[in-house]
Design a protein around this nucleic acid. Structure first.
Ligand SMILES: [Mg+2]
Length: 323
DNA sequence: GCGACAG
DNA sequence: ATCTTGTCGC
């Protein structure tokens, strides 16, 4: 009957155990203890999901401005009973009751993940090491809640140079890590690996950035390196930098291109691995269909959603039915 | 309240 | 990404 929280959820729970009655902490402080404030939202989502599905600890977590966040009514009641002063839906003298990041004993996993990214970055090759590109694979993942678990539905679709779909594979499995900005690869790599396993392709297209990432190692770089395959990232919005004349610039570096087809919203293209900046743009244009993304990604997105809806069964089902 | 951070 | 019907705007 015990559900299976992810590593991230377990660490948030471990942090929760360290907040005594009469004290509070913020989602951001816990995120900092885990290694990056960017995970603040992921912490709040984890806490909320945990109290709803397992009745876990939740009321001693508040927002950094002292506001209470979700389920404010009940939270207010519980905190007041523990001696925390609340005025106008905000904690008064937050500092006085706050348990800060350095007082929370949890492993800094996000710091380690960042180090792993920096290590991977050294191996990224931004030169064309690809021969003919006939088969382009695109992967996308849809997410949903199933019996208190967060489940991902991945689809890998292979398209040939005539833009005909020549194969696909789908996978259903539990999520292992939340979405945290700049760490997307750690959330989606298990799905990318499972859905491409045993599939033949020359190039991998992913729904996210390549080098257009603060550390220059977006999801497309990460996956390309792990598989030793050419890869390109095609995102629907910017993560870092700004667009100047259809070029994505960041810290004085050219990191990608804005590609747009008539009447469509733009796509942001950046190389992942074994492909140059210029070639990444031309290849993506070569596989462009009639939508706002290259065809393999459009199809992968559609199939992933159908899978989630239950319209089609997964090729591989890795979901452990609890009970 | 605004800015804003792939999916 | 997800929650979701009718409604607003180009
Ligand atoms: Mg996606």
């Amino acid at each position: 009957m015990i559900q299976t929280p992810t590593i991230f959820d377990r660490l948030v729970l471990k942090a929760a155990e360290q907040i005594p009655r009469g004290k509070i902490t913020t989602f951001g402080e816990v995120a900092k203890a885990l290694g990056d404030v960017r995970a603040a939202r992921a912490v709040s989502i984890s806490v909320l999901r945990d109290v709803k599905s397992r009745g876990g600890p939740w009321h001693r977590f508040v927002a950094s401005d002292g506001s209470l966040g979700a389920m404010a009514g009940k939270k207010r009641e519980l905190l007041l009973s523990e001696g925390i002063p609340i005025i106008n839906s905000r904690i008064r003298d937050l500092e006085r009751f706050l348990v800060k990041a350095d007082e929370i004993d949890v492993p800094p996993i996000l710091l380690k993940m960042r180090l792993a990214q920096k290590k991977l970055r050294e191996r990224v090759v931004l030169e064309d090491r690809l021969e003919e590109v006939d088969l382009a694979a695109g992967v996308d993942v849809a997410y949903g809640l199933y019996r208190g678990l967060e489940v991902g539905y991945a689809a890998c679709v292979v398209v040939d140079s005539k833009l005909d779909r020549v194969g696909f594979k789908t996978v259903r499995m539990e999520t292992t890590f939340p979405y945290v900005p700049t760490y997307l690869a750690f959330r989606e790599m298990p799905f990318i690996a499972a859905s491409t396993k045993g599939i033949q392709f020359d190039l991998l297209l992913l729904d996210g950035h390549g080098i257009a990432h603060p550390e220059r190692v977006g999801e497309a770089c990460h996956a390309g390196l792990v598989f030793g395959k050419p890869s390109i990232g095609v995102a629907k919005s910017i993560l870092v930098g700004k667009v100047v004349d259809s070029v994505i610039m960041h810290k004085g570096e050219k990191i990608g291109y804005l590609v747009r087809k008539e009447g469509q919203s733009p796509a942001f293209v950046s190389p992942g691995h074994l492909v140059s900046l210029e070639t990444s743009r031309s290849i993506v244009e070569k596989f462009w269909g009639r939508y706002k993304q290259p065809k393999p990604l459009v199809l992968a997105h559609e199939i992933a959603k159908k899978l989630k809806r239950g319209d089609v069964p997964p090729t591989i089902d890795l979901l452990h039915e609890g009970g």
